[in-house]
Design a protein around this nucleic acid. Structure first.
Lengths: 327, 327
DNA sequence: CTGTTAGCGCTTTCAC
DNA sequence: GTGAAAGCGCTAACAG
């Protein structure tokens, strides 16, 4: 494989000149440039990025940490990141943690080791114990914000979103509303629960911890739990923290022969494809997933390329309630 | 940021020794090793991977090219690749092409430029015009095999899979079976069509090109097309090339008030979550997506680390028919 | 077992 | 506008 040296020799110039041509420096005469380009062409020279990156002390890679890619929600975020990154000349190193903070932490070490220039933590679980001293300029949190990691972030207002959807249920006449949210320790889930509480209280309904069901994101867990609860006949709606949960809730309600949404209303969260396709289609909250990824990549790269101008940002993007058949 | 030089000075040894400790060479006395480790600890030294990779002429990265990550099918493949890669000390550079052969081609150049050691093309569309001279040892095709790119590959037997599912429909008494497959030019789709043809012929049914519907993978396209076709009352089943297509077909059949599967049976392909959750649940073909990714990564890395022992492999993994309510 | 040293391929001063 | 030369941090002969 030819190197700059070979190109220089063939073009009858110095390696410095070759390098200038490679980097589009304008301090090269047109004639020389042509000679060099010709030599590159003839030799089939390809710049060795390993060498270039080493020399420039820059990998042009950003690490993307997320729980899983087997989830359309994250897939969109990744796409947003990828597109924005590519526009700026960066590639993305993907790593999924399965929500293990240890794996996330392990991967974050790649920053100091210079394998990557920076990282976007997209909703992946991290914890204050495993996290070590990190350069906040080189990390952006997306979708989720863990305050003990003092970085910029891009996400929606989860409390407000959940408030709105529960408020919507109440305006529809629902009075005994359950809330199904993810396990504890995840900031956005606590925000959502708070939104639920506020919506009830502002409408003069009583909040009770008993009506908050902690469960997994999939449909099976809430399905089982709700099958039991629903028998009591006490409830007329449930606000779920994911669309899959909503599917589970609907399955349970259907089995109990409840009419949806009249006898029992269900809402989801995320607006994944299933929420449109499922029957009944599911009222849910759409997060601007692509835009979250895009924005996260943009502010990360800005900060990477201009660390002196760094200022920590908290960017709240707008969400949207999608009303459909289930509520 | 301290370098090996700093560590060497502090530990009172040479840089070579530091390097040996870093690389777990056993040619270091225990006492020296401890001294070095202590110095590393005290200085908070982190090896610069940019330098190491440059020196070793190896990025320890593999490129993963796929059409989109917003598809659970590919997501599983990616996870298989990621897990296998991590076990061997590799990271994955993700790139989605949106099925543009040009973008795929552009990314493949990263191999020659040494940004990555090799690549897995997972079902991403490529074409013989844009593809340039590639080192076949450094590429593995997964899920899909384009013969003009003469590399190893890992996939299922698409023809056999489709044969089996159509044969299953026939054994269930269906006689006028449609086939919905993706657009032309994709090898696996042509294989599937061939499987459809063979199943009909081996069962004494007539194959007609008219009964092959070319459409997009999503549910909307086939839904529209089938709504018209179904009115004729001529058909009693459809074998689809994706689960989303099957959803579209079922929606159309339901609207025409056909009983599924008695009056109209539908099969899908891929066994994505929707096929289990949807009502009716969908009979489909499960591809071992995770295993395809895993195996692809393994044989790629084997070939990368032992290029002399290279032998091109075509690995066919077993699929599985999942019979459910729709057929 | 350990140290000395060359050099990976490229970019970037610094002269001219 | 161009060239000479230093050097990024690390590894790997080679010598001892």
């Amino acid at each position: 494989m030819p190197t700059v040296k070979d190109v220089a020799r063939r073009a009858g110039v110095s390696v410095a000149t070759v390098s200038r041509v490679l980097n589009n420096s304008n301090r090269v005469s047109d004639k020389t440039r042509q000679k060099v380009l010709k030599a590159i062409e003839e030799l089939g020279f390809k710049p060795n990025l390993l060498a270039r990156n080493f020399r420039k002390d820059k990998s042009n890679l950003i690490l993307v940490i997320l729980p899983t890619v087997a989830n359309v929600y994250f897939a969109r975020v990744v796409k947003g990141i990828e597109d924005a990154a590519r526009k700026r000349g960066y590639g993305i190193l993907l790593c999924t943690t399965g929500n293990s903070p240890e794996i996330a932490c392990e991967y974050l070490k790649l920053i100091e080791r210079k394998q990557v220039d920076g990282a976007i933590i997209a909703s992946a679980r991290i914890d204050s114990e495993t996290i070590f001293d990190l350069d906040q300029k080189k990390i952006v949190q997306a979708c989720e914000f863990y305050p003990f990691l003092d970085t910029s972030c891009v996400l929606i207002d989860h409390k407000k979103a959940f408030f709105e959807i529960v408020d919507y249920l109440i305006k529809k006449g629902k009075k005994n509303i359950l809330c199904a949210i993810g396990n504890e320790g995840i900031p956005s889930e606590e925000e959502r629960k708070e939104g639920y509480r506020q919506a009830l209280e502002e409408n003069g309904l009583e909040f009770s911890e008993e009506n908050v069901i902690r469960c997994r994101y999939g449909w099976a867990d809430i399905y089982e739990r709700l099958k039991v609860l629903i028998c009591s006949g006490k409830y007329d709606a449930i606000a779920c923290s994911s669309d899959l949960m909503a599917v589970g809730a609907i399955k349970a309600a259907k089995e109990s022969l409840l009419k949806i949404p009249d006898e029992f209303a269900v809402t989801g969260f995320d607006n994944i494809m299933i929420s449109r396709i499922y029957e009944p289609s599911i009222t849910t909250v759409a997060q601007p997933m692509y835009e979250i990824g895009e924005k996260a990549a943009e502010i990360l790269i800005d900060s990477l390329e201009n660390p002196d101008g760094f200022s920590k940002q908290k960017i709240i993007l707008p969400h949207e309630i999608k009303t459909r058949e289930s509520a």
